[in-house]
């Protein structure tokens, strides 16, 4: 099977899904309550045209809007989740995996593809939040590691869009160790002088924020995204006081020095493309095109 056939079915699935899930032609912005025409909202990359609220989007959609049109290659697509602990809570982990796979059309929470961004070779990864809360287990860690390997082999830059509640509890210590695995992989990328741009989207918390997401050569976030180590509810229960306004939002992190910049989704391609070209000492995109 060629790479093209490998990638096509999932693309097609994504298309069908976005059309079938919310049937309505009109969507209400959760932030400003404006009633928006669905097609227009999609044209606007799911950013509310009235208040610029960035809605959560799926991993495939994210990668499709981010990369140049053309050939892409999916990395680690055949790495599949296992259940080493035979974990069972109110449901079996295996059953949770199957239903997440059915609902999302993905087999785990991280999608990694190699393609181009404004003409530069890149690998872009995106977390699928609808897959068990974008939680990081062994498959996420391994796909991320392979993405780094691919970058080194092809002299490509790495971009990762995080959207995750953290480590996957059902894989217990294995998932905790993925924090070490993804972080260690990034040291190899750094040694090759290849850039890693981390883009934190709503939400990025727990083990993902405390590993790969905070280790970008550039740490970027979408506006108003929830980003933090502990979730606000846990913190509230611990400190028993009301949390400050805007606490753990992108703007709060920028103010406290954790981020390089906040970038609007509609400017993401241009801003990151320009930054990567600067880091790799390539001429600006316009002069090449």
């Amino acid at each position: 099977m060629s790479w093209f056939e490998k990638i096509m079915p999932s693309r097609i699935k994504t298309e069908r899904r976005t059309r079938s899930v919310p049937e309505g032609l009109w969507i209400k912005c959760p932030s400003c309550d404006a009633v928006l025409y669905r097609a227009e909202l999609e044209r606007n990359l799911n950013v509310c045209p009235k208040c610029s609220h960035h809605m959560r989007i799926g991993a495939r959609e994210r990668l499709a809007m981010f990369l140049d049109e053309g050939d892409v290659f999916e990395i680690g697509a055949h790495v599949m989740p296992e259940d080493p602990l035979r974990f069972k809570d109110s449901k079996r982990y295996r059953d949770r995996l199957v239903s997440a796979q059915k609902n999302t059309g993905e087999n785990d929470a991280l999608i990694a593809v190699a393609g181009k961004l404004l003409g530069v070779d890149v690998v872009a990864c995106a977390f699928e939040f609808r897959f068990l809360g974008g939680s990081m287990g062994s498959v996420v860690g391994e796909r991320f590691r392979r993405s780094v390997d691919y970058c080194i082999e092809h002299r490509a830059a790495l971009i990762c869009f995080s959207a995750s509640g953290g480590a996957r509890m059902q894989e217990a210590l294995y998932s905790l160790l993925q924090m070490a695995k993804t972080s260690a992989a990034l040291t190899r990328l750094a040694r090759e002088h290849l850039p890693f741009i981390s883009v934190m989207t709503d939400p990025t918390t727990g083990g993902v924020s405390a590993s790969l997401a905070m280790l970008g050569d550039l740490n970027v976030a979408e506006p108003r995204a929830l980003i933090g180590f502990a979730g606000p509810r846990v913190i509230q229960q611990t400190v028993r006081e009301t949390l400050p306004e805007g606490f753990q939002r992108s703007e709060f992190l920028l103010e406290h020095g954790a981020l390089d910049m906040i970038v609007d989704r509609r400017d993401m391609r241009e801003r990151l493309g320009a930054a990567i070209r600067l880091l790799l000492k390539l001429p600006p995109a316009a002069t090449v095109a």
Partner: peptide, 16 residues
């Protein structure tokens, strides 16, 4: 998990 921890970058400190 506290307010100050988040302000001073708990995630980054662990990741680093």
């Amino acid at each position: 998990p506290g307010v100050g921890s988040e302000e001073r970058g708990q995630s980054e400190a662990i990741a680093r």
